[in-house]
């Protein structure tokens, strides 16, 4: 390690519901970067952070925000980094805001000519104003079931339920509103679940092989973070054409939402062959069971080298 090796400050933790996942992501990336020769510190969001970031002696060459959820992915921490003039790895605040809010992201994707399942965006207050029973009945009758109910902002499938029975829609919404006051009600599409990561090592965004996720039920928090319940295929078992379509979708989403350096797009290849965008992530999970590292390994990368290359590509040009 020398002074030429990048000095990286990883931000992990925070106060979101995904704190635990973020801390694990931070530790994994820190280990890999150290192995690649970088000087690495990991910091939580706290009262001392601004002092650290404002101290010229402690100033890192670059910050890698690995905060999942809320302030980590909605662009606000990156706004502060911009204010301080500290370079960071990843998407700018505007892209974060677009990707973090699922209805906004889906609308942008639709405007870009890409397919995404039909959806409604309904705040808790609207159920109060219009009457929950009437609105629930209307959703079941006109929109139809099954649907996936998601907090319009959030990650790790927290507060997400699949609803097939009208009697369960109210409960799904109650669980959703505990995480966020606006619900995204999305047509449930059956098919192959895919996650396609995009990295940009300085020569433009490149899609990594799609990862296929097979679970014995809903791809919920347990299936995501307790190894075993989900089976992953990297690369996904797709025809060459479908693999290309998946890569194109992720690159188009990366571009449409203005994402930078790395992203992950979750998609579904429906049983009828249509490929749908579900959501995009500016701070994809990087822990043991996460999808981007799996895709990177499938593409032949080693994680330490890939992460260092991402860091170096993000450093400001002298």
């Amino acid at each position: 390690m020398s002074s030429a090796d990048p000095n990286v400050l990883i931000l992990a933790g925070g106060l979101s519901h995904e704190r635990d996942v973020s801390l694990r992501s931070g530790r994994r990336v820190a280990e890999a970067l150290r192995e690649a020769g970088c000087r690495v510190r990991v910091a939580d969001l706290g009262l001392d952070l601004l002092a650290v970031l404002d101290d010229a002696k402690k100033l890192p060459d670059i910050v890698w925000p690995l905060l999942h959820g809320a302030t980590g992915e909605n662009g606000s921490v990156r706004d502060v980094l911009d204010l301080l003039g500290i370079p960071y790895l990843g998407s700018p605040p505007r892209a974060c805001r677009a990707a973090w809010n699922k209805p906004v992201a889906k609308s942008a994707i639709a405007r870009a000519g890409l397919a995404t399942p039909r959806f409604l965006t309904l705040p808790q207050s609207l159920f109060q104003q219009l009457g929950a029973d009437a609105l629930l009945a209307l959703i079941c009758e006109r929109f139809g079931l099954p649907v996936v109910v998601k907090p319009s902002e959030g990650g790790s499938a927290l507060g997400v339920s699949k609803v097939e029975d009208p009697a369960h829609l109210g409960k799904a919404l109650v669980q959703c509103f505990a995480y966020h006051e606006v619900a995204l009600i999305e047509e449930a599409v059956s098919g192959v679940e895919l996650a396609i990561s995009v990295v940009d090592l300085g020569d433009g965004p490149v899609a990594l092989p799609a990862v296929e996720i097979v679970t014995d039920g809903f791809y919920d928090y347990d299936a995501r973070y307790n190894p075993g319940r989900a089976e992953f295929f990297a690369p996904a078992r797709l025809t060459e054409t479908d693999a290309e379509r998946a890569a194109h979708l992720a690159l188009a989403a990366h571009d449409a939402l203005g994402m930078v350096r790395l992203s992950r797009t979750d998609a579904i290849l429906a049983n009828d062959g249509a490929l749908y965008f579900l959501e995009a992530n500016v701070a994809p999970g990087m822990q043991e069971t996460s999808l981007l590292p799996q895709a990177a390994l499938a593409a032949g990368h080693t994680l330490p080298t890939l992460y260092r290359n991402l860091v170096e590509a993000s450093l400001p040009t002298p």
Partner: peptide
Amino acid sequence: MSAKPSGTRLDPWYG
């Protein structure tokens, strides 16, 4: 589809 033999559960001892 060109089927791959198997995926991974990220836990070789799952079974």
